[in-house]
Amino acid sequence: MIRLTTPLGEEVLALHAGDRVLLSGIIYTARDEAHKKIMEDGFPFDPKGAVIYHCGPVVDEAQGKIVAAGPTTSARMNNLTKPMLDAGVRALIGKGGMSAAVREELRGRAVYFAFTGGCAALAASCMDLVDCHYPELGMAEAVWEIRLTDLPVVVGIDAHCGDLFSR
């Protein structure tokens, strides 16, 4: 098992599709609406080396706690991902894989981690809530800043076009 901590750098280039990774450090959730918002109004965080998680969590806002936070279907973000990678994002986390175009866009710079869909309670048990950006988008669509400890992911698409989803 490989251990990685965000922000990520060139170490992602050494990963191969199928590698199991325990991921730690700060990550940012973003779904459809957040991607659109970032393209219009800019990043609410430094994108260099950042990791974006395709996720709309259940958050207990009164207690400042992530309750459930599994991945959403990444394919919805196929056409929204290039600007994230161009800005320096080094990894995406999601489920179900992404398009051949995204596979090309990842080449030589970033990877796609697959985390098991539906495993929201397990994910939340690896998370501490740090901050919320663009809260006006609502709970599912806002950008939640989260500190991860050892989330068990698999490299779904590596930086050399290796792709577990393309068969």
């Binding site: 959403t72 985390f115 098991t116 495993c119 929201a120 309670a121 397990l122 048990s125």
Partner: peptide, 28 residues
Amino acid sequence: VIARGEYENIFANLRVAKEKDVPICQDT
């Protein structure tokens, strides 16, 4: 082997959801 890892995450998730009394999946 990779699929087996996914089931292991699923079973760990079901245990955590039951113990902590929280939703299994965030898409409720």
